[in-house]
Structure formats: structure tokens, C-alpha cells
Simulated assay, not measured.
Amino acid sequence: MIEKKTDDSFVAPIPSDTSYEDVEPNGFDAVATKKLLRKLDWHLIPFMSLIYLLCFLDRTNIGNARLDHLEQDLKLHGLQYNDCLAVLFPFYIAAEIPSNIMMKRTRPSIWLTFIMFFWSLAMILQGFVQNYSGLMATRVFLGVFEGGLFPGVNYYISQWYVRDECGFRMALFFSAATLAGAFGGVLARGIAEMSGVGGKAAWAWIFILEGLLSILVSTIAYWCIYDYPETARFLTPKERTEVQRRLHADHGHLSNDFDMKYVYQALTDWKIYMFMLICMAGFCPIYSFALFLPTIIKNMGYTANDAQLMSVPPYVCACFFTIAASWYADRVKKRGVFLMGFQVVAIAGFAMLAATGRPSIQYADSAGDGVE
């Protein structure tokens, strides 16, 4: 039974057999709808973006820590550093679906706060490891708890916006990853001055301080995350009804309930596997870029401190193109052409990076790769 507010003092129930398509939009014309969307944006997207910024920062700051003698101090050799990078991802992937199920069975404010607190704790403990085994173990737990954030927030956004409004909001949220790269370089450069403080190396302080920042935000996350439109305190009853009406008009008879038949339908849908391949094609270069960019820049001849700072501009460039392209893609309702265009730019950038040894050209290629 959905409530439809008919005046300022009375909320009349809508009969359960009435479809949302048949319900008038409560006086919400184009201007009022735009105002409503901006209200949603300001209350939902900034904090989600902040959480993802911290998540991506905690996941990839090992690339910055490497420049401050991480491998030498932990006596890593051969491919052990690469092992520590790679071990995160199987556990990250395995956690995604169970995490979304848990978020639906609890509430976003509870589950997202829970996983954020524990990945932050794993990040802090990473600053106290003394060998290869310790680093591997903390990376495993980091993957387990971080795995639920990206799919969880994408699902969360779909519970507030209709389909052709989700792309731009997801891009705003995902752009926090590019800001994390820029912010991480600047932060790592400053933390490098703490080398030796408390008997700890700069790389350890990178993990500890950035983990403490994340755990601080997790302590307020429960009160900053609004679960669903029907319980949102920042919306008026009339606005809650309108948000729900729009969602039902857009989703039709699609169910939000968990049922194994939906799992089977997803597993037998060829489009799921095509999107998996597209996702892999995008994320493999992104993580290679995020985890190794500081090292690549240092190998161009820059000092470790300069390399931390020089990793910032490519991310700033990427952030601009992520937001601009997604906004325009939603506007013209075409996304595939933008995906293919940026993939071509990234392919050209990686090819030039591998083909030339000139630092200036390599650095320009890195900026081009970042927009992917």
C-alpha cells in the first residue's frame, strides 16, 4: 500500500491494485522533478563518493608505499610484491554477491558501515606487518571487506534513480577513484616526511594514517547513509511518494526480492558475460595504472618524492573526462560509443608507453591512459 499525499495535512493510501504508471506525479512538473533530483544528489552522492575515494585509496596506496622502501624493509623478492597485489582480487570478487545479499537483508547504512570499519582496520594493520606473510594476510582481509562496496553502491543508486539517471550518478561516484589517485600521490608525498617517526618507515605511516582516516569516516557513516526513499528523513512525504512512483514507473513489474530463479536467469543470459568481458577490459588497465603508475614515473628518472606528485595530473585529467563523458552519454542516451572511444585512446596510450623510452612521451601517454 503506497501513500499519496493529496494536501499538506492528509496522506491518502493508493489502492494496492493501482499501478504507479496510473498515479499522477503529485504536481511534479519538469522543474519540480529537477529540483527533487538535485536534492537527492546532494544528500546521497557526496558521501558515497567519499567512501569510494577512501576505499580506492586504501586498495591502491601500496603503489605509493612501494616508492618508500616497502619491498626492501619487508625483504620481498622476485614476484612477491606482485603476489601481494594480486591476492586481493579473488577475495574481492568472491565477496561481491554475498555482500549485496547481506546489504538487502540488513540495511545499506548498517552493512556499508560494517564493511568500511573492517577494511579500515585491515588497512591500519597493514602498517604493522613485518614480512611477506603478514602483508599477504592483510591484503586478503582488505579484499574481503572492500569487495562489497562498488556493487553495493551501484545497487543503492538504482534504488533512488530511474535507469537513464543512474549512469551519471554512478560516474560521479566512480570519479572518486580518479580523485583518490590524485589525492593519494599528494598525501604520500607529505607522509614521506614522517619516515622514522615512532620507529616506523614512511610506507607504514601511509597505511596507518590513511586507514585511520577511513575508520574515522566509518564512525559517522551510519548516520550519513540514508537507506531507502520510503524512510529518507530529508524528503517530505510528498517527495517520498514521487520518488517511489518514478521508480515503479521505470522498473515496471521487476522484483527486488531474492529468488534463485533470478540467479539462474542471470547465469543463462549471454549479455551478462559480455558485460563481464567489458568490465575486465576496463578494470585490468585501471588497476595496472593505479598500482604501478608511481613506479613507472620513478623509472622515468624522477625521484621518489617527485614521482608521488607527478602521479597527480593523469588522475585529474581522468576525473574530468569521466564526469563529462558520462553526463553527455546520459544526455544523448548512448553509452557504447563513448566506451569504445575511450578504449581506443587507452589502447593507443598503452601501446605508446611500451614502444618509447622517452620520459616526456611516456608521461603524456599515462595521462591519456587515465581517462579510460
Score class of each variant (00 low, 15 high):
102 M>T: 13
41 D>W: 03
44 L>K: 06
50 L>H: 06
87 V>T: 02
47 F>Y: 14
106 T>I: 08
116 M>G: 08
65 A>K: 00
108 P>L: 02
108 P>E: 00
69 H>R: 13
45 I>G: 05
74 L>W: 02
50 L>Q: 04
120 S>N: 07
93 I>G: 08
53 L>Q: 02
51 I>M: 14
41 D>F: 14
48 M>N: 07
89 F>L: 11
106 T>S: 14
56 F>P: 07
87 V>Q: 04
105 R>I: 01
72 Q>G: 01
81 Y>H: 11
96 E>N: 12
40 L>T: 03
119 W>P: 10
43 H>F: 10
42 W>Q: 03
117 F>C: 11
48 M>S: 13
53 L>G: 05
73 D>M: 06
74 L>P: 03
116 M>D: 05
101 I>M: 14
107 R>P: 00
96 E>T: 09
59 R>D: 00
103 M>L: 15
60 T>M: 09
114 F>A: 13
63 G>L: 07
92 Y>P: 11
49 S>C: 11
61 N>D: 12
118 F>L: 13
91 F>I: 07
57 L>N: 11
121 L>M: 13
81 Y>G: 03
62 I>K: 08
102 M>G: 03
81 Y>R: 06
97 I>E: 01
62 I>M: 12
52 Y>G: 03
80 Q>N: 05
118 F>R: 11
113 T>D: 10
91 F>H: 08
95 A>I: 01
118 F>W: 15
117 F>S: 14
101 I>H: 12
80 Q>G: 06
91 F>D: 09
41 D>T: 12
97 I>P: 10
117 F>L: 13
38 R>H: 14
90 P>D: 10
67 L>E: 06
104 K>I: 03
62 I>C: 04
122 A>E: 00
93 I>M: 13
54 L>E: 05
110 I>G: 01
73 D>G: 08
115 I>E: 01
116 M>A: 12
39 K>V: 05
85 L>A: 10
75 K>F: 05
102 M>V: 14
47 F>T: 13
87 V>I: 15
69 H>I: 01
55 C>D: 12
38 R>Q: 12
120 S>D: 08
85 L>D: 01
86 A>H: 07
87 V>W: 02
90 P>Y: 08
115 I>K: 04
119 W>C: 05
115 I>L: 13
110 I>R: 14
54 L>C: 09
116 M>F: 11
38 R>S: 08
43 H>A: 14
111 W>L: 07
80 Q>C: 07
84 C>W: 00
97 I>S: 09
112 L>Q: 07
57 L>A: 09
50 L>W: 01
85 L>Q: 11
49 S>R: 05
108 P>M: 05
56 F>H: 13
59 R>G: 00
121 L>A: 13
57 L>S: 09
69 H>K: 14
105 R>V: 02
101 I>P: 05
119 W>I: 00
49 S>W: 04
120 S>A: 15
103 M>K: 12
57 L>E: 06
98 P>F: 06
122 A>Y: 00
51 I>N: 02
100 N>D: 06
113 T>C: 09
78 G>A: 10
93 I>N: 04
62 I>W: 00
98 P>L: 09
94 A>H: 02
100 N>S: 08
112 L>R: 06
